[in-house]
């Protein structure tokens, strides 16, 4: 569903990501793991067209999207739930969701809102609440729900467990499994390695912007050399 070839991201002289190749199929969860500064968030931003200096080829369902702006990438089926949630704090839950359906007709947006509320009943009961007044876990759910409002084929989740209580992390794992079972391709950038390897089918390990290992998540989770060398476990 998503194919990336030779992705490079740089910030001035700093090369954040170097010649990264990866693929994700429909109904698959792939995690991108590594220490802080390994290039995980830069990769996701580059895939969305939001990193300033980037090279490489990005395709979604066979269509190359490397040359188009973020708004068109979203219309092509890519969606991002960013690190730090980035909900619109002075807008209600319903307005945040509507903002996530940019480009859709009002009828389509209403239909998608109904689907999202069915998946996140808590958000329905809070639809008039300002997003900035919600807890971290609720904001994370809203950020994911908002990303789903574009009806994506590939969902990019950037550090979704950051700052969340363990019980909310468990809920998040269930949600990821539900979305995967629905056929969504999910790329998860995550510092919480145990969580990432537990919820994903495959994983890519990044170190200083370079891909050092990839493979089945279970195999990587049981490889003490990898865990110790790159993931601090």
């Amino acid at each position: 569903m998503l194919s990336v070839e030779g992705l490079c991201v740089s910030y001035g002289l700093l090369r954040a990501v170097q010649r990264l190749d990866l693929t994700i199929a429909a109904g698959e969860v792939v995690s991108l793991i590594g220490a802080n500064g390994a290039g995980k968030s830069s990769t996701l931003k580059a895939l969305m067209g939001l990193a300033p200096n980037r090279e490489g080829k990005v395709s979604i369902a066979g269509r190359t999207i490397s040359h188009i702006a973020a708004a068109q990438r979203v219309r092509s089926g890519l969606a991002l739930s960013p690190e730090g949630r980035h909900v619109f704090p002075d807008m209600s839950v319903a307005e945040n969701l509507l903002a996530g359906a940019a480009g859709a007709s009002r009828a389509d947006a209403d239909c998608r809102t109904a689907n999202v509320f069915a998946m996140f009943p808590k958000l329905m009961s809070r639809q008039s609440q300002l997003a900035g007044t919600m807890s971290g876990g609720e904001q994370q759910m809203l950020a994911i729900a908002r990303a789903l409002m574009s009806s994506p084929r590939v969902l990019l989740l950037d550090e979704p467990t950051l700052g969340l209580a363990p019980i909310i992390v468990d809920e998040l794992a269930e949600l990821i499994e539900t979305l995967r079972a629905g056929g969504l391709a999910i790329l998860l950038a995550e510092q919480n390695v145990e969580f990432a390897l537990a919820v994903s089918n495959r994983a890519y390990v990044l170190d200083a912007g370079v891909l050092v290992k990839s493979g089945n998540s279970r195999a990587l989770a049981s490889d003490p050399a990898i865990l110790a060398a790159y993931l601090g476990l």
């Binding site: 969305m48 939001l50 702006a69 973020a70 708004a71 990438r73 979203v74 219309r75 969606a79 991002l80 960013p82 980035h86 909900v87 619109f88 704090p89 002075d90 807008m91 307005e95 945040n96 509507l98 903002a99 996530g100 940019a102 480009g103 009002r106 908002r146 990303a147 409002m149 574009s150």
Partner: peptide
């Protein structure tokens, strides 16, 4: 209006607005 909501979204968080597909 949709324009009003997208305008407020862009004003509150430009990065997030771009990330959700607002031009």
């Amino acid at each position: 209006s949709r324009f009003g909501i997208e305008m407020r979204a862009a004003a509150q968080d430009r990065f997030a607005a771009e990330a959700v597909g607002i031009d």
